[in-house]
């Protein structure tokens, strides 16, 4: 198993006719992922073609899901329209909406998140790299790639990875792959202050997933999400967890690219989070080069 998505998960892409969406739809098709539909309002009936594969385009998410059986959406629409795109997935009762879009107004996300309460659709992101469940082919071909992560760096295996950041996730994944440790699923939850799925949500899923045997959790300064997850891990998690917190050198009050990474309270500095990680039995990577090894130290001894 894996979490959230499997190799045969059927994917629709909102914004498939834009440059960004089209590029990554092609890369997902190349990786062997099941991209079955595109959605661009007004372009319904057209076809997105890549390497001989024809992906039908629909005007609405509901229609795309009904016609193709897609259960997950990758959202690449521009920021002013992204919250609307998320809510359209909710209306269509999808399992999962993965919002890659960077720069969505916070107010739009506050409203969208409130509107999603009690609905079955889960949101990953926004401002995230998406998620990958690696396949079992060469260089993990045949996996489910939703978003913008490079597929080939993965290997199918037993480590779950959760992170806010994109390239820092790839760093961790590549360290694991280079040490012959594959991944069950890698989830980038995004760097925005209001997001759909938290570190803790993903950790709980990994904890219940029989294929996942160990977990890497990557966090940043700002907010209390990593601390909340760490305390839950101490009380409930059955699996070894390694952690890293980025931003030890970030000056207070400055936004470091990720809107979420602004230091405010007393428990959201890197030092405070690292201390809590230690207290909760998480193996802390001293540097970003040490993430996979930090896991191997407590997992494989």
């Amino acid at each position: 198993m894996s979490i959230l998505v499997k190799e045969d998960t059927r994917i629709l892409v909102q914004g498939i006719t834009g440059d960004f969406g089209a590029r990554h739809a092609r890369l997902s098709i190349d990786y062997g992922s099941q991209v079955v539909a595109g959605v661009t309002p007004g372009k319904g009936g057209q076809v997105f073609e890549h390497n001989g594969k024809k992906v039908p385009i629909f005007n609405t998410v509901a229609e795309a899901a009904k016609q193709t059986g897609a259960t997950v959406s990758a959202i690449f629409v521009p920021p002013p329209f992204a919250a609307d795109a998320i809510l359209e997935c909710v209306d269509a009762d999808l399992d999962l909406a993965v919002a890659i879009t960077e720069g969505i107004p916070v107010k739009d996300m506050i409203r969208a998140k409130r509107a999603m309460q009690g609905k079955r659709t889960r949101l990953i992101g926004p401002n995230c790299p998406g998620l990958v469940t690696p396949g079992r082919g060469d260089k993990s071909y045949g996996g489910c790639r939703i978003g913008i992560a490079p597929g080939y760096i993965h290997r199918r295996g037993k480590v779950g990875v959760v992170s806010r950041s994109g390239t820092l996730t790839y760093e961790a994944v590549w360290q694991l792959t280079c040490r012959n440790q594959g991944q069950s699923t890698c989830v980038g939850i995004g760097g925005d202050p209001v997001n759909g799925t938290s570190h803790l949500d993903v950790i709980k899923l990994f904890n219940e997933d029989p294929e996942t045997e160990a977990i890497i959790m990557i966090g940043e300064i700002g907010g209390s999400a990593e601390v909340e997850a760490a305390r839950w891990i101490k009380a409930h998690c059955k699996k070894p967890v390694a952690g890293f917190i980025a931003g030890a050198t970030a000056p207070a009050g400055r936004r470091m690219g990720h809107a979420g990474a602004v230091i405010g309270g007393s428990e959201d500095t890197a030092a405070a989070k690292i201390k809590i990680f230690h207290e909760c039995g998480i193996s802390v990577a001293a540097t970003p080069s040490d993430m996979a090894d930090a896991l191997l130290r407590i997992w494989k001894g």
Partner: peptide
């Protein structure tokens, strides 16, 4: 550096090895 998280942690690792970062640049 490419990526905000990697950029922040690059600053961190410079400091970890006794240096001092001059900037954040993503």
């Amino acid at each position: 550096v490419n990526g905000a998280g990697l950029a922040m942690s690059t600053m961190d690792i410079i400091q970890h090895f006794g240096g001092s970062p001059a900037n954040f640049l993503d």
